[in-house]
Design a protein around this nucleic acid. Structure first.
Lengths: 344, 344
DNA sequence: ATTAGCACTCTTAGCTTGAGAGTGCTAATC
DNA sequence: GATTAGCACTCTCAAGCTAAGAGTGCTAAT
């Protein structure tokens, strides 16, 4: 049975008020605050219907109603769409010409979003994994150490210090540098595997034994770059919500945010749009009284990471969806601008 | 008036018990739990004396006593020294040869220390500022972008992406690279200032206008590296302490940890040893019910950053001092090992 | 100098109670 | 038939009260 218009309006009213007050909402409150043209008794009946249909719940008899996960879902899917028509188009004025590492920029945006929304933000940082290697280079530091610098097409940079057992002379170094540069540039990181190593091995000829070791080391360090990088900002914002005045619940929340496995899975982008997961819709029990709104961010059209706003299911979906939308668009734009080739 | 032996033992007993229970300690409890050979009445009198002398305080009449900041200070200075005789000597077994960025290593140790101690750890990350530049290099990315890579004597590495208004040709690039390399290597970062810029300008000759701009950009990005980098780990551990069951207090604590100015000042190393600041000894009002135990960490003898364990004044100074001591020694050793030149 | 004893103080956990908010049902009304 | 007024009933929660418990400080005895 589809919801008639009055039921929709009542559901919306309950959600709106509950988002604000975190208190169960009674029929009289709605009759007073919203001009629905019917008395509280009618609303009372409608609310009983909505509860029976699963959109509302009652914490205990003779308390008001609160929205259920299903109620929020209906709200997000059916009621919210009217408000989300606006598109944001942001024009960049001017740019400084020095850019921090990409991670710093992403963190800055996470911080901004957290302070605007007063929510906890979780971020999957840009990963090097799926990207094409644009530049790979080794640089000598001293006789037995070198820096491995990798930069991908989308602008992610990583550097690692490699310490060698034996000293390396400058001719050999030059040779090695050219070799890995030729072999690895333009490849995706995951393509840089054993086959490639064998190829390098073959070409290195006389210096083989030594080159062999170094190549292994380099491949190793590339593997290290794999580890997903998670970041969070504004965790303590959870304490602003009265439902987290219980210390134990707060502690559980902190532990959840620190749980790399769950966060990683939760932040995995499923499609290109903004996704909302409400309470028990999550496959993780730990998330059942939380909602997350997540959005990807991109460099030149390629998804490089994910942003999420996480908080109690009672969240201001309307406002937050707008804000994450704006923010991820802007971040993508900034990153793309920086890493765009020959832009002028 | 110096404390006689019995008073010392009673003070120690109060502190020990209070660290464990977070409850005011009464005379009877001490008589029962510690075998001092006197009755509770005697202890009662002694405690009254200790209170008058400022080592103990009473939350309200007819409650037990809790240690004052002065009490803790006395404990740390006079009682603890017996326990701190042990020295740790750690031998490294073997090392993998790829090292993550220095920051990652420091963070790993912070995490470890936090999980061992169940306290919040604040860290001043390695700074490039006071260190000699060992290697500075620009690398072309594409026609209008380059990477600036700086490495200091102690092994701190930073890289920045620089985006140029105009394209740069490879001859000019080579020239510029040699120039900044010659001029900046071996200098301390803060010495790389306007004077140097002028020098570079003078030598650049015909290409001057262009080089000028790039040099400015480079100096700018060096300035960016200045910003102190603070890091914290295990913030939520504060919720383990009953004195932070009050949500408002917890929130204040979180804000304090996020306050870069205060944390930066608090973590400024004053001397080479382990420092303990107890409650109101701090110049920051925000720290008055907190204590911090801090220790520096070094690379090849040079201080590069600071570690701090922060928590309620009721902390297990004895255990924590030992643990931060061990940890910072080990970290210094690891870092020095990695960045030691020609170690084999 | 130490200790037993005791009156006194202060806090806190547990209990009771009444106000307030809200429901669901019934009967009257539009 | 849908809406509404009215009312009995339910449940929560804050306020006030009380008694138990922990601890002190003082006095007088050892």
């Amino acid at each position: 049975m589809p919801l008639d218009d009055r039921k929709k309006r009542i559901l919306e009213a309950v959600i709106n008020d509950y988002i604000l007050t975190a208190e169960p909402i009674g029929s009289r409150t709605i009759a007073k605050r919203y001009d629905l043209g019917v008395s509280s008794a009618t609303i009372r009946n409608e609310m009983a219907d909505l509860e029976e249909m699963g959109y509302l719940e009652q914490p205990h008899t003779s308390a008001g109603r609160i929205p259920s996960d299903k109620g929020y879902r209906f709200y997000v899917n059916n009621i919210l769409e009217h408000y989300l028509k606006e598109t944001y188009d942001y024009e960049f004025e001017s740019f400084n010409e020095v850019f921090a590492e990409i991670d710093e920029i992403v963190k800055k945006y996470a911080k901004l979003l957290s302070s605007i929304t007063n929510h906890t933000i979780v971020v999957k940082m840009p990963r090097i994994d799926e990207n094409t290697i644009k530049r790979i280079q080794i640089l000598p530091v001293d006789s037995n150490k070198l820096i491995l610098l990798v930069m991908t097409e989308s602008g992610i940079m990583k550097n690692y210090l490699i310490s060698l057992k034996d000293n390396i002379d400058s001719n050999l170094f030059e040779f090695l540098n050219n070799l890995i540069n030729n072999k690895m540039t333009g490849k995706r990181k995951r393509e840089v595997d054993k086959t490639l190593r064998d190829e390098i091995k073959k070409e290195s000829g006389s210096a083989m034994g030594f080159i062999d070791k170094i190549t292994d080391t380099i491949l190793n360090s590339l593997k290290q770059m794999d580890e997903t990088d998670l970041y969070s900002e504004g965790i303590s914002n959870i304490l602003n919500f009265p439902e987290y005045k219980d210390l134990f619940k707060a502690k559980t929340f902190f532990d959840l945010i620190d749980n790399k496995d769950i966060m990683n899975s939760v932040l995995e982008p499923e499609d290109d749009s903004i996704e909302v997961t409400i309470g028990s819709e999550s496959k993780f029990e730990e998330m059942w009284d939380l909602s997350i709104i997540k959005s990807t961010y991109k460099i030149n059209g390629e998804i490089v990471g994910t942003f999420g706003i996480i908080g109690p299911t009672r969240m201001n979906y309307k406002r937050l969806i707008n804000e994450i939308n704006m923010m991820s668009n802007e971040l993508s734009k900034v990153l793309s601008y920086i890493y765009q080739e020959n832009k002028r």
